[in-house]
């Protein structure tokens, strides 16, 4: 052991310093711009701190913004549940299979995961559109006579977002399920437990940690979503991030955009701190 310590002492330069370039970049291109944006836009919205806080409160409790906050949370919640329902069996099968079946499953998850969000959204617009895949099928089989309106509503937003965010859940759940000791399941079977009983009492509890951290990351990403709801949603599906973009692009109401950004940022950071306590952040992106 002495020799290893000597060797460590020989390398007098601590590699910890190598984090500096990235830290500098994140401070100057990320932290400071966000802070500057908040300070500059909010300082005009009132005289003194108390008045600014008052303005922020008035904005956040106004009916339009409150409605958007409710819709955002609601959509994010449904998206998370839909994604979980679809991701769980996929991850379960991935953890169990090998060879060709495993490769195919990984392909079905990873290829969409690394495809641009705008491309994935576009493809769902093609599938759900008036002249899209599903309507063509429905008309061809004679189930309906008129194309069904599946685009530009909350349903379309949920489908599109769940599709985009599903891989995060699959990969988190897969990591958890891969770590389950199969002898526990064998032991349960040996003791006479049935398939569903084993799932409910042994397998499911062992995966709850992954379920929780996977759902949390999907929810965090969902509340800040912009591209998919903006392209697939109807007039009532205005999520917070869309409202922020609109204030900046169309009405040029910077203070309003800043207040909503601040709110979204605070909620995101609170949820992220919970995630930080529970999950392995190194596996955040799968």
């Amino acid at each position: 052991m002495a020799s290893i310590r000597d060797a460590d002492r020989v390398s007098d330069f601590d590699p910890a310093w190598l984090i500096l370039p990235l830290a500098l970049m994140l401070v100057s291109m990320f932290l400071l711009p966000i802070a500057w944006f908040f300070v500059r836009t909010l300082q005009d919205s009132g005289e003194g701190f108390a008045e600014i806080v008052d303005t922020i409160w008035t904005v956040l409790t106004s009916p339009a913004i409150r409605g958007s906050i409710v819709i955002t949370n609601w959509i994010a919640l449904v998206v998370t549940l839909v994604a979980l329902l679809l991701a769980y069996p996929i991850a379960y099968m991935m953890a169990r299979s090998r060879g060709v079946a495993f490769t195919l499953l990984v392909m079905c998850v990873v290829l969409p995961y690394f495809t641009s969000v705008i491309v994935r959204t576009y493809s769902w617009m093609v599938i759900l559109g008036r002249q899209g895949l599903i309507n063509s099928l429905l008309l061809w089989t004679g189930i309906v006579d008129e194309p069904v309106a599946m685009m530009y509503n909350t349903f379309a937003v949920v489908v599109g977002m769940a599709y985009v965010l599903l891989p995060y859940l699959v990969l988190t759940l897969y990591a958890t399920m891969k770590g389950i000791d199969p002898s526990l399941l064998r032991a349960a079977r040996g003791l006479g437990a049935g398939g569903f009983y084993i799932f409910r009492r042994v397998y499911l509890p062992l995966t709850l940690h992954g379920v929780f951290s996977g759902c949390l990351i999907v929810f965090i990403l969902a509340i800040g979503f912009f591209i998919t709801p903006a392209l697939m949603g109807g007039p009532s599906d205005v999520m917070i991030a869309m409202l922020i973009e609109r204030e900046v692009e169309l009405t040029l109401n910077w203070p309003l955009a800043a207040i909503m950004s601040l709110f979204l940022l605070v909620v995101t950071l609170v949820l992220y701190s919970i995630y930080y306590r529970f999950a392995n952040i190194e596996r955040m992106m799968g």
Partner: peptide
């Protein structure tokens, strides 16, 4: 953090400066 913070916020702040 940049992966977690909504890109809209990052983008607007960068545009702002």
């Amino acid at each position: 953090l940049p992966l977690i913070v909504p890109h809209v916020i990052t983008a607007i702040a960068l545009y702002f400066v």
